[in-house]
Computed example of a mutant assay.
Amino acid sequence: MLSFLKSLNVLDIISLPGGSSVPVSVFKDIFKNVPEIPTYENFMEIDNEKKGYKLFFEQCREQGIIN
């Protein structure tokens, strides 16, 4: 997960689509069970389209940050 966060080039806050944001500490806690090199599917298994991160992960996939 740390490599994913480094790819985002964020320190404390992750900016999400729609103008919302999440502290990195909260994001790391929610997605603590993803592999070190996570995929879109890894994140979506946890998000399950209920936590509101789908658009964010789709953008990351389109930008080549995750597969």
Rank of each mutant, 00 (worst) to 15 (best):
V24M: 03
F27D: 04
L11H: 01
K28M: 08
D12R: 12
G64K: 04
S3I: 07
L55I: 04
G52D: 10
P38L: 01
N9C: 13
L8C: 08
G64E: 02
M1S: 05
E58M: 08
F4M: 02
K28R: 14
P38H: 03
I30W: 09
F57R: 01
S21A: 13
P17S: 06
S7A: 15
I37Y: 01
K32M: 13
K54S: 09
P35S: 13
D29N: 12
F56I: 06
V10N: 12
I13A: 03
K50M: 07
I65A: 08
I66K: 00
S15C: 08
F57E: 00
I13K: 12
V34A: 09
S20Q: 12
C60T: 10
I66Y: 00
G18E: 02
I30C: 02
P38E: 09
F27E: 02
I14W: 01
P17D: 04
R61Y: 12
V24Q: 06
F43S: 06
S3W: 00
Y53G: 03
S3Q: 11
E36C: 10
S25G: 00
E41L: 13
M1I: 13
R61K: 15
L11Y: 09
F57W: 12
P23Y: 06
N42D: 15
I65P: 04
Q59E: 15
L55C: 07
G19I: 05
P17E: 02
Q59D: 15
E49G: 03
Y40L: 14
V34M: 06
